[in-house]
């Protein structure tokens, strides 16, 4: 564990999380959520949990982004309020 890496990745994770929550456009939020998952994967790998990192990379960044995009297809572009 190198604390400089930890601090850098954690800062980027928090920025990505706030960005995904505050984004109006759902597609942008889904893509930023994919970036969040990849950073989370880097953090797991850096902490030595390679198996969890593998799962995070394949499920969190790969499949769940596609599932989010598939679900976003069922929504309309603009909200009414």
């Amino acid at each position: 564990m190198i604390w400089q890496f930890d601090l850098l990745i954690l800062t980027l994770i928090v920025i990505c999380a706030i960005g995904a929550l505050s984004m109006k456009d759902l597609l942008s939020a889904a893509i930023i959520f994919g970036i969040y998952s990849f950073l989370m994967c880097l953090l797991w790998a850096e902490m030595g949990a390679v198996d969890v990192a593998f799962t995070e990379a394949s499920v969190g960044a790969g499949v769940s982004t596609i599932l989010f995009i598939g679900a976003i297809l069922g929504t309309s572009r603009r909200s009414k309020d």
Partner: peptide
């Protein structure tokens, strides 16, 4: 490869299955 090498190295049935499914997706 990930499925078959699941018991020697990181990976396994779940991760390999997700990667295989992602190829069909």
């Amino acid at each position: 490869y990930v499925i078959v090498h699941g018991h020697y190295s990181p990976g396994g049935g779940f991760q390999g299955g997700v990667i295989l499914g992602a190829s069909f997706i």
